[in-house]
Design a protein around this nucleic acid. Structure first.
Length: 175
DNA sequence: GGCACGATGTGA
DNA sequence: CACATCGTGCCG
């Protein structure tokens, strides 16, 4: 289990996002390390992607997305849920991957609540942090690609882009 | 300064 | 379906 380095994230979000599936997200707090397999992610790609927060341009909130890959973009939604994202792509090309699900919890808000991830993680680098990192395990699970959740406001073609990636577990095929 | 709204989750 | 709950972007 090797920590993933920054180069992994300095590529296009559509290449990186599906490759995160099956890898392990680890957090450390209270002298304990907790690790979970990443099972669901979504890609947000550039200012032209109307569902991406960077569609509104460079602001204090989206600033980190314009930096190198590996940085963490965390923001509060609905006044109560922290969303965990990892920046990808080249400098000044705002992209990020929303971690939507891990093996134990599905739903991006439940995930950050359980892992105690909050706004203090904004701007941290996941390839250099001592309290959050991702490790490779050489697994390359089959995955599904479907439209992203909760972005109807973005309109076409963005609302239909199949940029939500989920591990294709066998159980998903059973009625 | 004020206002509308959201990459959600829960419970009726 | 209603709604909790607040940072952010945008208008003024």
């Amino acid at each position: 289990m090797n920590k993933i380095d920054q180069d992994f994230f300095n590529r296009d979000v559509l290449d990186v996002a599906p490759e995160l599936l099956g890898k392990y997200l680890s957090v450390k707090f209270s002298d304990q390390i907790y690790s979970f397999m990443i099972t669901e992610v979504e890609a947000y790609r550039g200012e032209e992607d109307k569902a991406c927060h960077a569609a509104k341009g460079r602001t204090s909130r989206t600033e980190i997305m314009y930096h190198e890959g590996g940085h963490i973009y965390v923001y509060l939604i609905y006044g109560m849920y922290w969303m965990l994202n990892i920046v990808t792509g080249k400098i000044n090309d705002p992209q990020a991957i929303l971690i939507r699900g891990i093996d134990e919890f599905s739903g991006p808000g439940k995930l950050t609540r359980q892992l105690k991830i909050d706004g203090s993680f904004y701007g941290e680098n996941i390839s250099r942090s001592a309290r959050i990192w991702i490790s490779d395990n050489k697994l390359k699970p089959k995955f599904l690609a479907n439209p992203r959740i909760g972005i109807d406001y973005a309109g076409e073609p963005w609302v239909s882009k199949p940029w939500r990636y989920t591990i294709d577990f066998p159980k998903n095929k059973c009625p």
